[in-house]
Design a protein around this nucleic acid. Structure first.
Length: 700
RNA sequence: GGGUUCGUAGUCUAGUGGUUAGGACGCCACCCUUACAAGGUGGAGACCGCAGUUCAAUUCUGCGCGGACCCACCA
C-alpha cells in the first residue's frame, strides 16, 4: 500500500537440540544408542509433522508472506551456506579451538546438553578440611567434592566476612598435594554456608567454571572421559570419583585434617537417563571470536531502529555480559556438520573449499593429500554446529549472499527483523555478530521485538503448566479477521497480551459494526465530487487526523495504534455522531440536492479510507466490502490513504459530543423518545452545524 | 540468587509535575430512534505500597511488593 516491492520468504528453522529432544520423546528412542543415520530420519519425520501444522496456522491467520518462496534451515542449500560462512570466518582467522567444560555423564559416556540434566536433591557429605598456612595457623573449608582437592586453584571468602579479613591475600597449602593457593575475597562466598571459605576447583560445578574464567585461573584436569581420576590426581590416578573421594577422606582423616563431616541434602545435577551425577569435563571445541568485537557490537546495536525503542536495552545488556568467545561445536546429530577433516598422520586440520554441503562424519573428504605431511588418510569431524550458527545467517540466505550479486545488493541489508523478546540474546545478537563479521554491514534496518500471547493469568504458556491455548479452534470459530483485529488491539508494541476468548469475541463486534455501517452507506450512490458542508468538513478533518496517527503507528510496526484509533474514530465519532447527524440529509429529508450530495460523498470517503486503513489488520472483510463498493481490484493494492482534509473544525468535536449527549440524556430523563421534538438553544460555537443538529434531534 | 523490564477499574489500555485521570471489554439500569438489540443511551468502578524531592506526584528518585523475560542454581 506504500508502493514498495517486498521480499517476505517463509522460513522454518529446523535445526538443533529441541528437535532432538522432541524426537526422542515422540519415538521413545535415545540419540545415544540410535545409529546416526536412523536418528536423522526420525528427526525429519517429526519435523515434517510439526512444520505442516505451523504452516497451516500461518495460512489460517492469513500471514502475507510469500509461501512459494519458502526455505528450511536444514536443507542442503541452507546448510551449505552455513558451512561456507564458517569457512570464510575460518579464513579471516575468527575461528579457533580451545577447551570447554562440558556436561558429561561417565556412565553413558556422552556429553549432555543442559536440557538433558535433571537437578535432584541428593544426600551428600559436607567435609570440613583444614588448609595450613606456611607460617602457622589454618583455614577450614567445607566441600562436598574432596576428591577435587588436587584441582583447587583458589579459596574464596566473602569480603564482608570479619573472620577472614586478615587472611585475604595470603596463601594456604592444599593438603595431600602440597601446592599453595591464594585466598581471595569474592561476594560469591556465602558466609552462612559451611565455614564461609570455599575452595574453587576445576570443576565441581558451573560456579567454579565461572570463577575460573573470571579470576583467570589455570584449569587442572582431574577427571577423564571414563570418569576416572587423571595423572594430575597423583596417588589417586585411575580411581573412580566415588573411590577417590573415599580414599581422600580416609587419608585426610589419618592426617588429622578433617574437622567434621556433615550429611546434607545437596542439589546435584544428574543425567536424565542414567540418573548418575553429571561431571564437568573440559574438551576441545571450536569457537568463533566475539569478545574482541564487544565495543563494535555496542555501537552497531545503537544503529538499529528498535520497535519499541526500549527493547534495545535487552541487546545492549546482553552484549555487555558477553565474557567468553562463542563455543560453536556440539556433540549432537541434528544440525549442520562442522566442515573439517583431520589428517590421520599429522593431525593437520583440513578445511574444504566453500560452496558445498559437507557431511564429514560419513563422506570422503574433497581432497586427496594432506597439505602439511602429504598423508592420504583423513578422519571427519563428527560434530555439528550450535543451531544459532545456522539461524544467524538467515538475512544472508534470503538475500542470496554469494550467489546473486545484483539481488543481494537490492535486498541486503534487509528491512526488518521481526522476533520475540526472548531470543534477543541469541537470534538477534548472533545475527548481528555473524552478518557483520561477513559483510561489515548491519543485517537489517528495523528490529521489531514482540511480546507474547500469555494465558489468562498473565503467565507464559507451556506444556508442563498445561496452560496452552490452541489457536486453531479459535481461528475456526471466529475467523482470521477477528483473531487478527483482537491481537492487534489487545496490547501495545513489545508487551505481552493475555489470551481470553471472551475478549476475542468482543473484538468481533467491531467487525459487525463495520459491516452494518457499510450496509448503511452502500444505500447511497458513490459520488466523486461535492461542495462540502461544514459538518462534512469537520468529520473529514477528524478522518485526516486518524490517517496520520495510523500512519505513524504502522511505521512503528505498532498495530495497536491503528487498531484502536480506527475503532475509536469509526465507532465513537463517525457512527455515533456524524452518521446520526447526516442521516436526514443523506435521505434528502429537508435538505438541498447539493447538501445531500455532500453527505453521500463524505460517507463514502470516510468508509473507503477506514477500509483501507484497516486492510492490513482485517484483510478479508475490508477487501470484500471495498470490492463491492469501490473498485474491482483488491483493497491491498490501493494506495495508503492521505490526510487531504485538515482544518480547525476538529476543535468542535468535543462540543458536538457533549451537546449530543446532553440532548440524549435530557430526553431520556424526561421519558421522551429520541424522535420526540425538543426546544433548546444551540450553543453559538455549534452554529456551523445547526441544520444537521436540528434535524438529528428534531429541535423545534 | 543475579540482571533487565513492567505495574492505571474485574480485564485490556490512553495520558500528564497541577486533568472532573480518557477509551474499550465485562457488569448494572433504561430504550426496537427506518445500518446495526452482534445496537443505542445512561451509570457504578482505577493510578501496587512506603519514604523522599517539590508549593504540588499517578507522573521524578530510592526502597519494598508483585508479574514477565534472560542468566545462574550453588562449596
Amino acid at each position: 500500500m506504500t508502493g514498495h516491492e517486498t521480499l517476505f520468504p517463509i522460513g522454518i528453522d529446523r535445526n538443533g537440540l529441541p528437535v532432538e529432544i522432541y524426537t526422542e520423546k515422540k519415538f521413545n528412542i535415545s540419540i545415544h544408542n540410535t545409529p546416526r543415520e536412523k536418528f536423522l530420519e526420525y528427526c525429519k519425520t517429526a519435523l515434517n509433522d510439526l512444520e505442516a501444522e505451523m504452516i497451516g496456522i500461518m495460512k489460517s491467520m492469513s500471514m502475507s508472506g510469500d509461501f512459494k518462496n519458502y526455505y528450511r534451515t536444514d536443507s542442503n542449500e541452507y546448510r551449505a551456506l552455513t558451512q561456507t560462512t564458517f569457512i570464510q570466518l575460518w579464513k579471516k582467522g575468527l575461528v579457533f579451538e580451545d577447551t570447554r567444560p562440558n556436561n558429561y555423564c561417565p556412565k553413558c559416556g556422552t556429553t549432555l546438553a543442559d536440557a538433558e540434566i535433571v537437578y535432584k536433591d541428593l544426600p551428600s557429605m559436607l567435609v570440613y578440611i583444614n588448609f595450613k598456612f606456611r607460617d602457622g595457623g589454618v583455614i577450614t573449608i567445607a566441600t562436598t567434592r574432596p576428591e577435587l582437592l588436587g584441582a583447587c586453584q583458589a579459596i574464596i571468602v566473602n569480603p564482608e566476612d570479619e573472620r577472614y579479613k586478615d587472611v585475604v591475600g595470603k596463601s594456604a597449602v592444599i593438603p595431600l598435594f602440597n601446592r599453595e593457593v591464594k585466598i581471595n575475597a569474592h561476594p560469591q562466598a556465602d558466609q552462612e554456608f559451611g565455614t564461609g571459605a570455599v575452595m574453587i576447583c576445576s570443576y565441581g560445578d558451573y560456579e567454579d567454571v565461572r570463577l575460573f574464567r573470571e579470576m583467570k585461573l589455570e584449569e587442572i584436569i582431574l577427571l577423564n572421559k571414563e570418569g576416572k581420576m587423571t595423572r594430575n590426581a597423583g596417588q589417586y590416578a585411575g580411581l573412580d570419583v566415588e573411590e577417590a573421594r573415599k580414599r581422600i577422606i580416609e587419608d585426610l582423616d589419618n592426617m588429622g585434617l578433617i574437622v567434621k563431616k556433615e550429611e546434607i541434602m545437596h542439589r546435584t545435577p544428574t543425567c536424565e537417563r542414567s540418573k548418575n551425577p553429571v561431571e564437568i569435563v573440559p574438551m576441545n571445541e571450536w569457537y568463533i571470536k566475539q569478545v574482541d568485537m564487544k565495543k563494535t557490537l555496542r555501537i552497531l546495536a545503537k544503529k538499529f531502529k528498535f520497535h519499541p525503542d526500549a527493547h534495545r536495552q535487552l541487546l545492549l545488556d546482553w552484549i555487555d555480559s558477553v565474557s567468553i568467545d562463542w563455543p560453536v561445536s556440539r556433540r549432537r546429530y541434528y544440525g549442520t556438520e562442522i566442515p573439517i577433516w583431520y589428517c590421520r598422520d599429522c593431525k593437520a586440520i583440513m578445511v574444504p573449499p566453500p560452496g558445498k554441503y559437507y557431511q564429514p562424519w560419513k563422506q570422503k573428504p574433497p581432497f586427496k593429500k594432506c597439505g602439511k605431511c602429504g598423508g592420504n588418510s583423513f578422519v571427519g569431524d563428527t560434530r555439528t554446529f550450535d543451531t544459532w550458527v545456522d539461524s544467524s545467517i538467515s538475512p544472508l540466505f534470503i538475500s542470496k549472499y554469494g550467489k546473486d550479486k545484483k539481488f543481494f545488493s537490492r535486498t541486503y541489508p534487509n528491512a526488518l527483523r521481526p522476533q520475540g523478546k526472548e531470543i534477543v540474546r541469541t537470534w538477534l545478537y548472533y545475527t548481528l555478530l555473524r552478518c557483520y563479521q561477513l559483510t561489515k554491514k548491519l543485517p537489517f534496518e528495523h528490529v521489531w521485538v514482540m511480546g507474547w500471547g500469555v494465558d489468562e493469568h498473565g503467565e507464559k504458556m507451556s506444556k508442563s503448566k498445561g496452560n496452552i491455548i490452541d489457536p486453531i479452534p479459535l481461528l475456526e470459530k471466529y475467523g482470521a479477521d477477528v483473531f487478527r483485529f483482537w491481537s492487534a488491539s489487545e496490547a501495545s508494541l513489545g508487551s505481552d497480551f493475555r489470551c481470553s476468548e471472551q475478549r476475542i469475541a468482543s473484538a468481533g463486534k467491531f467487525l459487525t459494526k463495520i459491516w452494518n455501517l457499510s450496509r448503511f452507506i452502500s444505500m447511497f450512490p458513490v459520488v466523486k465530487k461535492a461542495t462540502l458542508t461544514d459538518t462534512d468538513k469537520w468529520i473529514l478533518s477528524e478522518l485526516g487526523n486518524v490517517i496520520e496517527e495510523c500512519k505513524e503507528g504502522y511505521e512503528d510496526f505498532n498495530f495497536f495504534v491503528p487498531a484502536n484509533k480506527i475503532r475509536e474514530f469509526t465507532w465513537n465519532i463517525f457512527a455515533d455522531h456524524y452518521v446520526e447527524m447526516v442521516k436526514k440529509r443523506a435521505y434528502g429529508e429537508g435538505f438541498s440536492k447539493e447538501e445531500q450530495q455532500s453527505a453521500w460523498f463524505t460517507l463514502h470517503t470516510c468508509l473507503e479510507a477506514v477500509l483501507e486503513l484497516l486492510a492490513p489488520i482485517i484483510p478479508h472483510m475490508t477487501d470484500f466490502v471495498a470490492r463491492q463498493l469501490y473498485h474491482k481490484y483488491s483493497v491491498h493494492a490501493e494506495e495508503f490513504p492521505e490526510a487531504e482534509w485538515k482544518s480547525k473544525l476538529t476543535n468542535s468535536t468535543q462540543k458536538i459530543v457533549e451537546f449530543n449527549s446532553k440532548i440524549w440524556s435530557g430526553k431520556k430523563s424526561q421519558g421522551k423518545s429520541l424522535k420526540d421534538s425538543i426546544e433548546i438553544e444551540l450553543p453559538k460555537e455549534l452554529k456551523l452545524f445547526e441544520k444537521d443538529l436540528k434535524a438529528m434531534h428534531n429541535i423545534g
